[in-house]
Write a protein that binds this DNA or RNA. Structure first.
Ligand SMILES: [Mn+2]
Ligand SMILES: [Mn+2]
Ligand SMILES: [Zn+2]
Ligand SMILES: [Zn+2]
Lengths: 121, 121
DNA sequence: TTGGAAATGATAATCATTTCCATTTTCATG
DNA sequence: CATGAAAATGGAAATGATTATCATTTCCAA
């Protein structure tokens, strides 16, 4: 957990939702921070490894990052404005476990996201 | 549905699981087909638009494609060998609908994948 | 047959991400 | 405080998937 890691956590807190490495880098630069793009990528990767940051992908494959709440959860994302709500998996957790068992899979993980238009959009 | 689209369906049938555009292109080339990489991308995109092919992403963000069964479904994917089972969403479908409603989201879609190690791996 | 539309593929351009490497910072130790 | 090794940093170049261009070829309806 070095200086750059903390800087990334700070900017992620400020922005709130998901943002790409490039976007986060631009924000920091705009604020006068001379941090290099390489360092941004390195810090984000380190935070993802430590499970402090969620990594998922835009439709075009670009990686986007978000400060992660505690524990396992899922996302409800607005296709219009990007607003994101963290939600509980509920029924999904059992569904994943049951399906995996049914087909003899071990060490299972799962992803589940909901996309739609929020009330404002 | 042109000649190249059919060619891609054919090679996807033969390979079975998920494969990237680059991989599918190589396979066709190896078989003596002189199809261009551009056409491979175009055909795959067209098949995805028509919901004939599923598109998802490798961990590194690369797009991978798979011939899609009929209707809405989800995937159980082996992290070891890539074996993929198409499964029903079951409880997920209602979960997604309920959560979206709870937060006032409209026009909702969802994704859900399970990853693990199959019995062979 | 023929003229325009669709399809094709080589090439170049994009662009996120990674690699390389030289420089700077940090920090434990004497 | 001095110093040397290890960690951190950032610019520049490399990588690699995907997309944009554009000239050429193939289709096909009239
Ligand atoms: Mn999260
Ligand atoms: Mn499928
Ligand atoms: Zn919205
Ligand atoms: Zn397997």
């Amino acid at each position: 957990m070095n200086k750059s890691d903390l800087k990334m956590i700070s900017v992620l807190e400020r922005t709130g939702g998901f943002a790409s490495a490039q976007e986060l880098h631009q924000i920091l630069r705009r604020e006068g921070d001379g941090i290099g793009l390489t360092t941004v990528y390195r810090a984000l990767q380190s935070l993802v490894d430590d499970k402090i940051v969620d990594l998922l992908r835009r439709d075009d494959g670009e990686a986007i990052y978000r400060l992660c709440g505690d524990g396992h959860h899922h996302h409800l994302v607005c296709k219009g404005c990007g607003q994101t709500v963290e939600i509980e998996g509920g029924a999904i957790e059992n569904w994943a476990k049951a399906k995996a068992e049914e087909f003899g899979f071990r060490e299972v993980a799962h992803t589940a996201e909901i996309f739609g238009l929020c009330s404002k959009c």
